[in-house]
Design a protein around this nucleic acid. Sequence first.
DNA 1: TACCATTGTCAGCGCTCGCTGACAATTACA
DNA 2: TGTAATTGTCAGCGAGCGCTGACAATGGTA
Lengths: 93, 93
Amino acid sequence: MFIRTPADLGAIIKDNRKRLDLDQAGLAERVGVSRQWIVGIERGRARAELGLVLRALDVLGIKLNTIEPASLENAPSSPDIDAIVAASRKSST
Amino acid sequence: MFIRTPADLGAIIKDNRKRLDLDQAGLAERVGVSRQWIVGIERGRARAELGLVLRALDVLGIKLNTIEPASLENAPSSPDIDAIVAASRKSST
DNA sequence: TACCATTGTCAGCGCTCGCTGACAATTACA
DNA sequence: TGTAATTGTCAGCGAGCGCTGACAATGGTA
């Protein structure tokens, strides 16, 4: 599963929480956050804290890894950065 | 490259920024954040916003994917959650 | 040496996070 | 039907983010 947006991540967290048969309160306790935070992240809150997100993934047993272009001399970067930025800027919650 | 901590992510971002021959200001502009933010994230700021981080990875051409336990009936979860939480709690930056 | 680009850090500011505590809506079950 | 569990939402609060603007190190080059 690839992650491009906070919503993607929220879906993953929710799925895996259910897989583990945990309710929001249970996951919150294990991660060390409030239930509120779980609600927010599962709904795709964009401004959630990175550290907490990583902890949640860890608790759920989800490994996160990057697929980097490695060392391609002349960078392809991303297709159209402006579009990505423009689109991302709108996503508030 | 696996990501477990904000510092891991910072290192990845820094490496890839240099791979693309970008300075902090250049990357900041492309991502749509301040140069300050780049400085922070590369140093492992734990409380950075998820959405901005994802955008930075996108701009750098880094794909993020999860390796989930998929549907293992009885959850293995993570080894020792308490230790993870305790350790993570300290990382403030 | 002097100059320039890059990086790291500071202060101040507005805004939103994540928290607690509480309550309604939904679902499942006796 | 009534009860309990789960989930979503609200208000209020302290704390820290990310921003601008500025300045000091550092490193490379003429």
